[in-house]
Each structure stands twice: as structure tokens, then as C-alpha cells.
């Protein structure tokens, strides 16, 4: 012990940390536990992908993509379901983006805090957690039966719109909320109207966030099978849908579902190949999201 006062303080602090060896151990143990979690997740994903690629890669070729499904596994392809998936995603985007972004703008920029707004907000958050099969049943009753859209692309797209709308709304709200209040103040102080502020400042500034949310939501829609099964979409179509109101359609997840249900091993292989194609489309969409985000946010750094 030295004779000046500061070392006394330092010593007492040192004693403190020496007296708690457990703290250091706990800290390390926690880091190890978290790392283990990451490794388990990654390993599962890698094994899954590896098995699928190993099994299905041999079947992925141009013929597979350009052939219609067939009762002989060797000739079966995914042309109709791939095209059906792309049509469906396009239509879903067409419906969900204006509805979702419009709702988000209204709730964030126009709607004053009120009981009605809290009510709407709570419901949207809850709807995001509703299982998609429930939307499928709603779609069956509302679009397929009541609106007589049958098992058409339109009915499918509207049903999927219901599924992803809450996600699009929440993501867009989040993106709008991320625009600093000072930007709104500056715009209003220059004599801009609400509409001019939304259109001229808030939408451009929140575009990267909105786009990312929309594309991730669409990725989810692309992989949905349950609500489409519920509305009775075909698991086997040997033609391309010619119009969106009358023709039956199929999508990749349903095609995969159908093939895994067959007894023949060769169909399982076709299913694995279809999964590879579906994953490729999904990765492309996510890459697009990353690219758009980068592209539009380059100029925007708060």
C-alpha cells in the first residue's frame, strides 16, 4: 500500500474485479454459447443445401426448366410452375406495393395519434403473425367463391397480397419513421404541403428501406404453398396460364409438394432440382434487394 490517496482507490477497484472471477468466466461462456448457436444454424443450413444440391443438381438443366410436368419423371419439367410463380409474384407486387406503401404513408404522415390509429396499428402487427393458411381460407371464401375468380392467378395473387400486406406496411412504416424529423420540419418550413413533403422528401429518402421490405415480403410470397393449396391452385398444369382471371395455374412450391408426394425416387430428384431453381430465384431477388438498397442509399447518409 502506497502512502498517497489515489492508489488506495485503484487498489480497491482492483480488488473488486479480482473478487469476481466468475464475471469473466460468464462473459467467455456467453460468447461461446452464442457462437455455438450461430454454428448450429449455419451447419443445419449447409447440410440441407448440400443434400439438396447433391441430390438434385444432376436434374437442373435447360430441358428441366423448359419442359412441362409429365407423368414420367425423366421428362418432367417446371416450365408451367416457374412461369406461374413469376406471374404470381408480379401480380402480388402490383397489388401489395401501392396498398402497403399507401397505408404506411397514411398511418405515419397523415393520421394523428388517436384510438383509431392505435387500433389499426395493433391489428396490422397482429395480422403479420397470422398463419398464411388462414389467409388461404379467407381467399377461398372471398376471392375464389364470393368473387367467382375460381382458381385463377388473380385469386392467388390477391390471397398472397393479404399474406404479405402487413409485412409491407410495417417495413414501409419503419422506413418512413427512419427519416429524421428535421427533414419534415425543413420541408414544411419552406412552405411545402404535406403531399409535396411526402413525395419530394420522405419517399425518396425512405425508398431503400421500403424496397428492401417489399422484396423480402415478395420472397416470402414466392415460397408460400399453404394459402395456394387452400384456394385450390393446381399442383399439376401442363399449359401456361393465358389469362389471369380464368386459367388454372401452378407455382414452384406446389410442384415441389406434388413431386415429393410421388412414390418414385426420380420424382424426388425432380423436386430437389425444383428446390434448387426456387432457391436461385430467391437469391436473385435478395441480391436485387441488396443492390437497390446500395444504389439508392449511396446519397443518403444521415
Amino acid at each position: 500500500m502506497s502512502n498517497s490517496s489515489p492508489p488506495v482507490y485503484r487498489n480497491s477497484l482492483a480488488e473488486h474485479s479480482n473478487g469476481r472471477p466468475l464475471a469473466k468466466f460468464a462473459s467467455n461462456a456467453f460468447a461461446v454459447a452464442c457462437a455455438t448457436c450461430t454454428i448450429v444454424c449455419m451447419a443445419t443450413l449447409v447440410v440441407l443445401l448440400w443434400k439438396i444440391f447433391q441430390f438434385g443438381w444432376g436434374r437442373v438443366n435447360l430441358d428441366f426448366i423448359t419442359s412441362f410436368p409429365s407423368s414420367t419423371a425423366e421428362n418432367a419439367g417446371i416450365k408451367s410452375s416457374l412461369v406461374g410463380s413469376l406471374y404470381l409474384i408480379g401480380l402480388t407486387a402490383l397489388f401489395s406495393v401501392p396498398l402497403g406503401v399507401g397505408t404506411a404513408i397514411y398511418l405515419e404522415e397523415y393520421c394523428k395519434p388517436s384510438r383509431w390509429r392505435t387500433f389499426a396499428q395493433t391489428n396490422i402487427a397482429n395480422l403479420a403473425g397470422v398463419p398464411s393458411i388462414v389467409y388461404g381460407i379467407l381467399g377461398l371464401g372471398l376471392f375464389v367463391r364470393a368473387m367467382s375468380l375460381n382458381r385463377s392467378l388473380l385469386a392467388g395473387a390477391l390471397t398472397l397480397t393479404l399474406v404479405i400486406l402487413p409485412i409491407v406496411i410495417l417495413a414501409s412504416q419503419e422506413a418512413l419513421r427512419a427519416v429524421p424529423k428535421t427533414i419534415r420540419q425543413a420541408s414544411y418550413a419552406l412552405g411545402a404541403t404535406r403531399w409535396q413533403t411526402v413525395w419530394g422528401q420522405l419517399l425518396p429518402a425512405s425508398l431503400p428501406g421500403i424496397l428492401t421490405g417489399v422484396i423480402l415480403a415478395l420472397s416470402r410470397a414466392l415460397g408460400e404453398a399453404a394459402p395456394l393449396l387452400a384456394i385450390g391452385a393446381a399442383t399439376y398444369t401442363a399449359f401456361l396460364p393465358q389469362d389471369i382471371v380464368h386459367d388454372d395455374f401452378s407455382v414452384l412450391p406446389l410442384q415441389i409438394y406434388n413431386w415429393t408426394d410421388q412414390p418414385q425416387e426420380a420424382f424426388h430428384q425432380a423436386a430437389a432440382a425444383a428446390i434448387v431453381v426456387l432457391l436461385t430465384v430467391l437469391i436473385c431477388m435478395n441480391a436485387l434487394a441488396v443492390f437497390l438498397r446500395y444504389r439508392f442509399s449511396k446519397r443518403i447518409q444521415w
Binding site: T182, A186, S187, Y188, A189, G191, I300, Q301
Partner: peptide, 17 residues
Amino acid sequence: LRKRVGMVFQKSNPFPK
């Protein structure tokens, strides 16, 4: 009114443009 009465804020707030 706000066109006639301009305002400069405490924290500079240029638009991200």
C-alpha cells in the same frame, strides 16, 4: 405564410439531395 417567414433550425438539416 411559411414562404414569407423562412426558418433556419438549430441543427443544420439539409435534404439528402
